[in-house]
Design a protein around this nucleic acid. Structure first.
Lengths: 366, 366
DNA sequence: TTGAAAGCGCTAACAT
DNA sequence: ATGTTAGCGCTTTCAA
């Protein structure tokens, strides 16, 4: 039996230090208003006993959990085809950890899980939520705002209709999909390409829609035949590329909505005997290393700082929870919170966004 | 202000239903020993009030949290170069969800975080832990066993020295790295290849070491010059492949310890004008789709069912926690727990393992 | 500055 | 079968 090593309570520490429980509590929570010698005595007792506060007891009275839920809705397994969420999670985790908050991960598999997640959030088990909503018509974001939990979204949420704005402004962090797309297309144009095609992502995702908008910003009302809708997968990229080539055999550049798609396009191009970048220049999006560096030729692409997005989401939420410096539970020295500046979004409208810049990474494909 | 919508308590429900708190508690926790009409009345009151149990209060008395920590130690960013952990997480999440348990994610960035994690686990915030230990000399597993929390490891833990076995048997789930490697090499041999080289992973990781053992099982004491140590990265694969080719220009097959490495090897092979699989056959390991399907030619590789590993880890832990059917918190209908059979490991020695089979996926490279 | 005391919302003996 | 009661370990007024 490994169990029942009865952990010491506040009471035990108090007894050992010869003070009251209240004093121990004060010391454990920062020690303000307790005289030095006592602080020392208590610290020692804590040390000797190996005291760790019981979070449940604490939460019961403070109604705080120092925990944040991360909700990832994964309509398809696609989510895991790239390290996107992993990086995001890492950024989130770092920031949360620096503020002594726990990360509760909620993965959903379609509608069935919505109710579960909503119930959990409404259940007040966590102080806030970080939510990745992918689809325009996803009901989850709405449910979550309904749950009344402070929330920050990852990626621009695509509210299809009027939503409950009374819950306060919608906060989100996104990368500059539109601007990045513009850069990509401008780069192609600067290379002298004029018949620049675009393979889109699934347009019910805001990231894909925004990239298409960026393409259009630069291309104006170019031949709609230069745009092929696709789905962020390599197979989809192949299909789209074939269509494009059939429609416009004269195209001289392709901007693909992500690297996976670009990889598919590259294969079709090679198969048709077209040289990259001589005959057709190709630019991707994401700078997803295992793909972008492995293609032949290596992919010129638009990089987004995914980990930073995660960090920012967490920072925004924590700030919203009004928890600037962490809670400092436990006897150890507090983590030093980096607490950098969060770029200001819209003042205080119904939507407040932090949009991260992207950068073009030049490799051989364009 | 969105706050302070004071959530109803057990007391409120009891009042509304005209029963005692105890009765409500019973109903909420399954309703055994309460007569039907009362159950109904209580259910209704719960419904009307939108009552959700306060988990903190509950944990305080039951000393259970219905939460499990997942600890992922990531020595390098490598962890996120492939969807390995994402898939694992998904498997874990599914199983945990089916049993109404929460997933608390703990990501560590090197030694500094060890203490934090150990403290958290020892702090009794979760009922158990699922731990991914990658390195032979990783102190984390030891710390964790020391924390006295029921734990299941992902991947065979590489205890370098005698460890505290008094914490009970070490449970782990792994895939059959050694057997998979044997299959790969045998496949190559069956193709008529005789000079089969091996590019290893970092040998301080048990998965890499086990794959090397599998290679040796089949190759016997073949020329050590046919083995090149590498690091699971594409760049490392390139380097190793070059070495190998320099040492043994006559080699006719390569078994790479993972797909990323194989992709690097493939590039070098092509660069040297060698045809795959005609001149050199190549087999990878993992069946990491975005890579294995995108290489040229597509990679023959050993697939491991990563999501299943995760599911199994969770199942094992839950079982160890003696929680066969979930706790059924909340008013909703209970999730039906699939509760499949867990393949039996060693009877009850110091180590109990569940080793999942691998399968060879044939594509064009071998 | 420190201590005493009153709960936070729930479960689990123990009565009835 | 149902109700009563005593805490679980902590924070937080309120007094001293």
């Amino acid at each position: 039996m490994t169990d029942t090593a009865p952990r010491p309570t506040l009471e035990a520490v108090a007894a050992r230090a010869g003070v009251s429980r209240a004093t121990v509590s004060r010391v454990v929570n920062g020690g303000d208003g307790v005289r030095e010698p006592l602080v020392e005595r208590v610290r020692q007792a804590v040390e000797e006993l190996g005291y760790v506060p019981n979070q449940a007891a604490r939460s019961l009275v403070t109604r705080r959990h120092d925990a944040v839920a991360v909700v990832i809705a994964e309509p398809e397994a696609r989510v895991f085809a790239d390290p996107f969420f992993a990086l995001q999670l890492r950024g989130i985790s770092k920031e949360l950890t620096a503020h002594d908050n726990q990360l509760v991960l909620l993965l959903t598999e379609g509608r069935d899980d919505h109710a579960r997640v909503a119930r959990y959030l409404a259940g007040g088990h966590v102080d806030g939520a970080l939510v990745f909503s992918l689809h325009l018509d996803d009901p989850l974001p709405g449910l979550i705002q309904g749950a009344g939990v402070p929330t920050v979204f990852g990626g621009r949420p695509g509210w299809s209709d009027g939503r409950a704005a009374d819950t306060g402004p919608t906060l989100y962090v996104d990368s500059d999909n539109r601007g990045g797309a513009r850069d990509a297309v401008r780069h192609l144009a600067a290379l002298g390409r004029t018949r620049i095609a675009h393979i889109t992502g699934p347009l019910d995702q805001t990231s894909a829609a925004d990239r298409l908008d960026g393409y259009r910003d630069v291309m104006g009302d170019a031949d709609p035949g230069l745009v092929a809708e696709s789905d962020f997968t390599p197979a989809g990229g192949e299909r789209a590329m074939r269509d494009l080539l059939d429609r416009r055999p004269d195209l001289d550049a392709v901007f693909a909505a992500n690297d996976l798609t670009a990889a598919g396009a590259l294969r079709v191009l090679r198969e048709r005997g077209l040289r990259v970048p001589e005959d057709v220049a190709v630019v991707g999006f994401d700078d997803m290393l295992p793909v972008a560096e492995q293609t032949d030729p290596p992919l010129t692409t638009v990089r987004q700082d995914i980990e930073e997005m995660g960090r920012l989401m967490a920072r925004l939420l924590l700030r919203r929870l009004d928890r600037p410096g962490g809670t400092g539970s436990g006897p150890g020295p507090r983590a030093t919170a980096p607490e950098q500046d969060v770029p200001p979004g819209e003042p205080d409208g119904a939507e407040a966004a932090v949009v991260l810049p992207t950068t073009l990474v030049r490799r051989a494909s364009a």
